[in-house]
């Protein structure tokens, strides 16, 4: 009997501990994601990325913290040509950590963003090298998860910023944006912590191309 009580207790401890851990995870992620929505300054973004990374290091089995940390670094890289190469390298390192846990279409999207940021440092000269790599990541994402709207969103966003002479502009961007909107409507996030962003961008593109 004592043995039973002991094992029950053990189970309970484990349960309490994990649910507490899980609550702690959900809580920390939720709070950080809220902050992510409003974070603007480089310092804030940097701190937030560091926090996501800390959560990732502590959890070890969750890919989402690394994913968000990488996405923040990729976003920072896009807006900061001077440090883009270094920031994109940080993003890649974080993506690699996330991919070791689970590799999926969302990570390909961040890979695309980091590569695009590198290209944007010097588009005239880097396009040849990074353009095909960035496009390749989106192809991979579309293959891994055909229901995910984000690769289409990113492709539309990239095309709308490409001159028409190089195959960009509304003509090619709009159908992709419309396809993305369709997918956004049917796309269900597995949890409130999972990525669920980008719809406004494609709506914007469709409106711009009316």
């Amino acid at each position: 009997m004592k043995k039973y009580i002991f094992s029950w207790a053990l189970l309970l401890i484990v349960h309490v501990a994990t649910s507490q851990n899980n609550d702690r995870y959900m809580g920390a992620m939720g709070a950080s994601l809220q902050q992510f929505a409003t974070a603007k300054s480089q310092t804030e973004m940097n701190e937030l990325a560091a926090r996501f990374q800390r959560i990732g290091e502590a959890e070890k089995t969750q890919w989402l913290p690394y994913y968000y940390a990488a996405m923040i670094k990729a976003q920072m890289a896009m807006g900061n040509a001077k440090q883009a190469d270094a920031l994109a390298a940080e993003a890649d390192a974080l993506i690699a950590k996330a991919a070791a846990i689970e590799d999926n279409a969302e990570l390909d999207c961040v890979r695309n963003m980091a590569t695009t940021a590198r290209m944007l440092v010097d588009p005239m000269n880097r396009w040849q090298q990074y353009g095909p790599i960035a496009a390749g990541f989106l192809q991979d994402a579309m293959k891994k998860d055909p229901t995910n709207p984000r690769p289409y969103m990113l492709q539309a966003a990239s095309l709308i910023n490409t001159p028409e002479q190089f195959g960009g502009g509304c003509k090619t961007a709009k159908p992709l944006a419309e396809k993305a909107i369709q997918l956004y409507e049917s796309f269900k996030s597995p949890s409130s912590l999972h990525p669920n962003w980008g719809k406004e961008t494609v709506i914007g593109i469709v409106q711009q191309c009316k």
Binding site: A28, E47, A50, R51, R54, I55, A58
Partner: peptide
């Protein structure tokens, strides 16, 4: 620079 306690969420920049 990132500062953290290993295996916890605690830390800062």
């Amino acid at each position: 620079a990132s500062i953290s306690i290993k295996n916890s969420y605690d830390g800062t920049v």
